[in-house]
Design a protein around this nucleic acid. Structure first.
Length: 581
RNA sequence: CGGGACGUGGCGCAGCUUGGCAGCGCGCCUGCUUUGGGAGCAGGAGGUCGCGGGUUCGAAUCCCGCCGUCCCGACCA
């Protein structure tokens, strides 16, 4: 055994605690009862994280090393596109959020703090702060573009933290922000970030799909989510089985449906349908006519950006997609528009009453329809497009389903459950033109507004997603680039065999000297315990030194991911692990 | 915020129905024996049974209130 307190050089992560006997690490045979997701169970069992409170986690050294690895990959790829790292305050004067209006729009997730200096917000994101910073320091087009990023803890008062690191109240986030002199510049910068993101996720060993997304509360136009398929995903996206079309289900369109059904001479008939405000109740009422939900026309009343009423039409067995700006009617809206009867809306005569009608193309392919009669407790059957009602605008507003046609090529769509691991936005001038604002003087001496983008990756979430997709029944199996150590060295039976201890100690020292990041399991534990823990921790390469191998002058090596084993002559171990064989 | 479940040593759980010395497995400490895929024996440490109140001679157990945690839903840069 090496002398206690012996000094070793710091490794690449600035850590010299590499012996299991001196590391703050406890593995658990059983997962904590509050861990549901497999990633959460394994990360907790292997000692990568500990829960302090709901959605708040500590990272013991092993987990911290994985975070540092992820950060290093992110730093390298950001450096490649010329982005500079900076650090921003976590504590923001509440006035900053009042000025941008997001104290209202993000009200529910803001964590507020009062202190002697006044009222503060724990930053959930930093667009306002960084925009103000760049505006102060940049005044000329000559200084643009500017690309900056931060890696730091952010806070959101999540309604429901879940699945371990997937959704937490305090989380480590990489956020980047870009400032350009023109829309074209912004688009070029966006492309650079998009490519950097692909490299980052590739290096993390993740199967990912960039999907088109809605922009949500952040605002802006073009944006992509980087999705990793997973059963714990909170999102779903549509993905074409033939071309590269992929979009979040909230944004996914579908192609034109099959040819319209043959003409029918069924007349429009009004029926008394007491106590049947929903699709299910109406279907039951007309059960003897063979009506199904697919034969009903679902009519959703909404209000658009300008406050004007819109009715969306989709088949009754479909969900309607409310695109940006549309808001479903509340009770006050129904009072303001008495011609739209809650629970009994039909498309007939709406245009005449100044209500815009937007229909999914599926509506043209079906019918005649059963639908609301615009009269309390009455529905109609036989409603036919062109005869009984018309449509102002045809648009894909039904939520896509498995096997729906792709909007680009018509091939069937897959629906995939996934985790959003990263998100890139072209913000345009949303923040730079408003408060706090960011402007510069162009080559003609005229003041212009900067064109901006923002680009986020949840670092803790990334760790969970990698664990989710890199494990087996024995434990974790980290991809090489993100593993906490490169090599897990196990001494077997060192207590009773001094030569094993000597050889293992010497090998540990030699590996450290050669710059190999090695975790040395020098505990006085049985071989079974060490093997089981090694498989649980998931360090890519395991090297075992034991009496059996020693007798033949070899160490045994196992590749954690594939399970493949081989033997290496002791004198060749360092060379083979450093790639110099 | 709505629905459901659960809070008992570091971790996993039993005990609660029917009130009567707080238990089991893992982990931890000491000793001996073991030793190539989560060893055995012996001894030991560690718990205000989530918190507060009530009922009772007596409450982990029954009643009331609160807090916390997880799951489903709503929400979600």
């Amino acid at each position: 055994m090496g002398a206690a307190g012996q000094e070793y050089p710091d490794d690449a992560l600035g850590c010299r605690v590499m012996r299991a006997t001196t590391m703050l690490l406890q593995t658990l045979r059983e997962a904590p009862g509050d861990a549901e997701a497999i990633s959460h169970q394994l990360l907790a069992r292997a000692g990568f994280l500990r829960r302090l409170a709901s959605g708040i986690y500590s990272y013991p050294p092993l987990g911290f090393r994985v975070l540092r690895r992820l950060e290093e990959i992110i730093r390298e790829e950001h450096a490649r596109i010329g982005a500079e790292e900076l650090l921003l305050p976590a504590l923001h004067p509440r006035e900053v959020w009042r000025a941008s209006g997001r104290d209202v729009t993000m009200d529910e997730v803001l964590m507020r703090v009062s202190a002697r200096g006044g009222d503060f917000v724990l930053g959930p994101t930093h667009e306002e702060v960084v925009t103000a910073l760049v505006d102060e320091q940049v005044s000329s087009y000559r200084e643009l573009p500017r690309l900056v990023y931060q890696i730091q803890t952010k806070f959101r008062d999540e309604a429901r933290p879940r699945f371990g690191l997937l959704r937490t109240r305090e989380f480590i986030m990489k956020d980047a922000y870009s400032f350009d002199a023109s829309a074209d510049g912004m688009r070029a910068t966006y492309r650079a970030f998009y490519d950097a993101y692909c490299r980052i996720f590739d290096r993390c060993g993740l199967p990912y799909t960039p999907v088109e997304a809605l922009s949500g509360a952040i605002g802006g136009d073009v944006n992509h989510e980087f999705m990793v398929p997973s059963p714990i995903g909170e999102d779903r996206f549509a993905s074409c089985t033939a071309c590269d079309y992929a979009a979040n289900l909230e944004a996914a369109e579908t192609g034109a449906p099959a040819a319209p059904a043959g003409a029918s001479d069924e007349g429009l008939v009004e029926h008394h349908t007491p106590d049947a405000p929903g699709i299910d109740a109406v279907v039951e009422h007309f059960a003897d006519r063979g009506l199904t939900a697919a034969g009903m026309l679902k009519c959703i009343a909404a209000v658009d950006d300008d406050g004007a009423p819109v009715v969306l039409l989709v088949p009754g067995d479909r969900e309607a997609r409310l695109e940006g700006g549309l808001r479903v009617f509340d009770d006050a809206d129904f009072e303001a528009h008495p011609s739209l009867v809650k629970g009994y809306i039909g498309p007939m005569g709406l245009r005449e009453r100044g209500v815009r009608v937007v229909a999914d193309p599926l509506v043209a392919a079906g019918g005649p329809w059963a639908t609301g009669a615009n009269r309390f407790e009455h529905h109609v059957t036989g409603a036919t497009l062109g005869r009984d009602f018309d449509v102002d605008e045809w648009r894909s507003v039904a939520v896509a389903r498995e096997a729906d046609p792709c909007p680009r090529c018509g091939a069937p769509l897959d629906i995939v459950q996934a985790v959003e691991a990263g998100h890139t936005f072209q913000l345009g001038t949303v923040y730079s033109a408003g408060a706090p604002g960011a402007t510069f003087v162009d080559e003609d001496g005229v003041e212009q507004v900067m064109w901006t983008g923002s680009y986020g990756i949840g670092v803790g979430r990334l760790m969970a997603v990698i664990a989710e997709s890199h494990h087996d029944e024995h434990g974790l199996a980290w991809p090489a680039e993100v593993a906490p150590f490169a090599v897990h060295l196990l001494s077997l039976g060192a207590q009773r065999n001094p030569e094993v201890a000597e050889r293992a100690d010497a090998l540990h020292d030699a590996l450290v000297a050669a710059g190999v990041e090695v975790l040395y399991d020098d505990r006085d534990a049985s071989p079974g315990v060490k093997f089981a823990d090694a498989d649980l921790l998931g360090i890519p390469t395991q090297v075992a030194i034991g009496g059996k191998g020693l007798a033949r002058g070899v160490a045994e090596r196992k590749d954690r991911a594939s399970g493949e084993r081989d033997e290496i002559p002791l004198e060749d171990v360092v060379a083979s692990l450093t790639g110099r064989s």
